[in-house]
Structures are given as structure tokens and as C-alpha cells.
Design a protein around this nucleic acid. Structure first.
Lengths: 148, 148
DNA sequence: ATGTTATTGACAATGTACATGTCAATATGA
DNA sequence: TCATATTGACATGTACATTGTCAATAACAT
């Protein structure tokens, strides 16, 4: 297998990797009352502290209409709450409730445990290289798309 | 960012990478009459030369019922043909027609061109490491799932 | 301030890419 | 030869979205 074929294969491996990863995530959500999509919203809010629906959509790179649905779910379940937005009366700021924060922290902590057990046998320098390559690759593929 | 966080990030990068890759693939399919799912079938047949529907399903790791639909599409479009299976009267062997072979070869060739242009600036050793890590990761995540 | 354009929430319709369940025909193996 | 498995066909279900539209409100240029 030459260099180009390896790169080609690496790109195609992204799908099985993603599927395996999401299956594990899904299992980790059992008992939390979270769906995968709700988890994604909470994770963004956990990282950014607060955000409007359009902010979250941009971060997740999906349409705001769909994020709205997800956010409404988390609001209904008490994982998030609205706060008045001084910059826009209709577009309220969404933030985690204490419960939501505890839940997403727990989920991430458990995921980290899995990652930790998986990291055994992987060289840190290789992971470094892999992350670099994957990030570069993603960017280049995205720009490849926009360009032509 | 520590080692574990890098690994965590690498795993989550699989989704954007996959989406970017599939977007590029989809663009490369313009004018071929192929859908992404038909492309997947042809690719398997291109690699394995011939296969039954359940074979393809196993390779693609999706359910045979869905593969059946995809294969029927490619049959209808003349990209594949049935051949009698000496080992099973109901389950015929599927193989590429000349047209199907030409089409998938063209698609793969063009994809390779894109990959080639993207490979500039990536070190072969890094790509090697990335492929290794990603394959290992995928396996481990899959077994993580089955185990518990 | 006023008209114009953009943003946001809400909702409906649609699409994609699958999984699941079932049936009848046919194979396979004890 | 009887029980079990495999396969094709089809119907239905589901998760994760996109697209379009409307009304309310905001932001901005004139």
C-alpha cells in the first residue's frame, strides 16, 4: 500500500470510527435521559458556558431550526434554562441548569474513562500526529469543496 | 491539552472528517448517475470482483435488507448484473458490468486525484501513524461496545 | 423616524440512510 | 425427512437532519 492509498484509507476509516464512537457514546447515555442530540447541545453549552440557539447551530454546523428543536427538548427536561438576552429580546441566552451541568459532566467523565482505557498501548506522539493529520485533512477537504 | 484530551478530540473529529469526505465524494459523483450508496456497492464489487448481497452487507456492516435495495438499484441501472450461484439457487452472485466497472474506476480515479492534491504537505510517517491509531481506535471502540 | 433588510422562534413538510419485522421460497444439516 | 438457516421482497419504523414559510422583532441606512 503506497502513501496515497494509505491516505485514502485513512479518510474512509472516518466512517467506521465515527460509528464505533457514537455507539459507545449512546451506551454511555443510558440512564441519563439524554439523547445523542441533546448531549451535543449540552456539550456545547458546557464548553461555551452560554449561547443562543444560532450560536449552537454554528458550532455544531447544523441548521438553527434543528438546533431549536434539540434545545427545546433540553429546556423541557430541565437540563437547560433561558436567560434574557440584553442584545436581543426574542433570542434568549441558553445555559445549563445545575442538573444539566451535573449530567453532562457525568457523561463526559464516563466517556473519558473509556477513552482512558483505550489509550493504553497508544503512543502519545502517534496520537499527536494523528490529530494533526486528521485536522489538516478535514480542513483541506472542506476547502476542496468550497473551491470548485 | 493533555494526551487523553487529544485522544478524545481525535475521536470526535471523526464526524467532521467523515462529513467533509462524503461531501467531496458526493461532488465527484455528479454526472455518473451514481448515488453515494450505489457507489459503496460498486466499490465492494470492484474490490471483491463478485459477491452475494449478504456478502456485501457484511463488508459494509449494514443490514442485508438495505443492501438488497441498493443492489437492485445498481441492477436496474445496468452497473451490475446477476450471475447464477452454483451454491445457492435463490442467492445470485452480483458482479460489475463493463459499464459499472468503468464508472467506479472513473470515480475512484478522480477521488484519488483529490486525495493526491490534499496529500501535499502531509508527512508520510504522520499519515502512517494516523492510520495506525485510527484503525486501533476503531477496533477498541468496537470491542468496548461488545464487551459490556 | 422610517423604510428596508436580517435575525429569530415556531412549525410543517420532506429527505436520507438506515434498522426491524415478516413472509415465502429454498437450502442445509442432523 | 424434519428442523433450522438463508435469502429476496416488501412494509413499516426511526434518528437525524434539511428546506421552506410565517410572524415578531432587531439592526441599519437613509
Amino acid at each position: 500500500m503506497n502513501d496515497l492509498e494509505k491516505l485514502y484509507k485513512l479518510i474512509w476509516m472516518s466512517r467506521p470510527l465515527m460509528q464505533a464512537a457514537e455507539a459507545v457514546v449512546e451506551r454511555g447515555l443510558d440512564g441519563t435521559g439524554l439523547t445523542v442530540r441533546a448531549r451535543a447541545v449540552l456539550e456545547v453549552l458546557y464548553a461555551k458556558d452560554k449561547a443562543t440557539v444560532p450560536d449552537i447551530a454554528e458550532k455544531l454546523e447544523i441548521k438553527r431550526q434543528y438546533v431549536q428543536v434539540m434545545v427545546n427538548e433540553t429546556l423541557a427536561e430541565g437540563f437547560t434554562m433561558k436567560r434574557e438576552n440584553p442584545r436581543h429580546k426574542r433570542s434568549s441566552i441558553i445555559e445549563l441548569t445545575d442538573i444539566g451541568r451535573a449530567v453532562i459532566e457525568g457523561v463526559i467523565r464516563r466517556e473519558m474513562t473509556v477513552v482512558s482505557s483505550i489509550s493504553a498501548g497508544l503512543k502519545a506522539t502517534d496520537v499527536d500526529a494523528a490529530l494533526e493529520v486528521v485536522m489538516t485533512l478535514t480542513e483541506k477537504l472542506k476547502s476542496e469543496q468550497g473551491s470548485n
